[in-house]
């Protein structure tokens, strides 16, 4: 009786351990084959774009020294190997290396600056969003394509990775007459 209970308990413990190991291995595999990608955003402008609180100390951002023009925002998203620039003229390039798929975007900022050398962007702030997901629409489209045509439309349909970077700031104009 004791032996039977011991055997039963041991069997259950082994089953539970196997289940945990199997689940852990599956999750680890999912993490390992996860779509590795990154996205960088670089701004190019004829005028300075100051990050944070750092215009030159000779130029406080108050109404006596600068004139508020408008708020602007530049956003760029990268989904696996595809870049999409929402605002601004851009140069995009993608490469796949040991670090995964990279989407590097250079955005030419002209909105609000209007080639005026007295204008600049201050108080810039960076917001970044990273997302990992399974693109079910692509998955089912791919599945149906394989069923009905016998051929896959793309090379993969696993997890997807997306990164979005948004840089927002304020356009100011230097008040030369008050200086």
């Amino acid at each position: 009786m004791v032996n039977q209970r011991f055997v039963s308990n041991t069997t259950n413990a082994v089953k539970r351990s196997c289940a945990v190991l199997f689940l852990s291995a599956g999750i680890a595999l999912f993490a390992l084959i996860g779509c590795s990608s990154s996205h960088s955003l670089q701004l190019d402008a004829a005028q300075p774009v100051y990050f944070g609180n750092a215009p030159p100390s000779a130029l406080p951002l108050d109404s006596a020294h600068v004139q508020f023009i408008k708020q602007i925002s530049v956003m760029s998203s990268h989904v696996a190997e595809e870049e999409k620039v929402v605002q601004g003229k851009s140069t995009t390039f993608t490469k796949e290396g040991s670090e995964g798929i990279r989407g590097d975007v250079v955005v030419q900022v002209e909105d609000g600056l209007e080639n005026d050398p007295d204008r600049f962007i201050g108080n810039a702030e960076i917001r970044a969003r990273v997302e990992a997901y399974v693109p079910w629409t692509s998955f089912f489209t791919e599945f149906l394509a394989v069923i009905f045509t016998g051929q896959a439309k793309s090379e993969g349909m696993g997890e997807a990775s997306s990164e979005t970077i948004e840089i927002s700031g304020t356009v100011y104009k230097v008040r030369r007459v008050n200086r």
Binding site: D44, P48, V49, F51, A54, I126, R127, A128, E131
Partner: peptide, 23 residues
């Protein structure tokens, strides 16, 4: 599974420009 992060600079001692130009 994802989230949003904000990167800011509240007390820089020197000017930091995201473009290639500076005053």
């Amino acid at each position: 599974a994802g989230s949003q992060f904000t990167i800011e600079a509240s007390h820089l001692d020197q000017p930091v420009s995201l473009s290639s130009t500076i005053h």
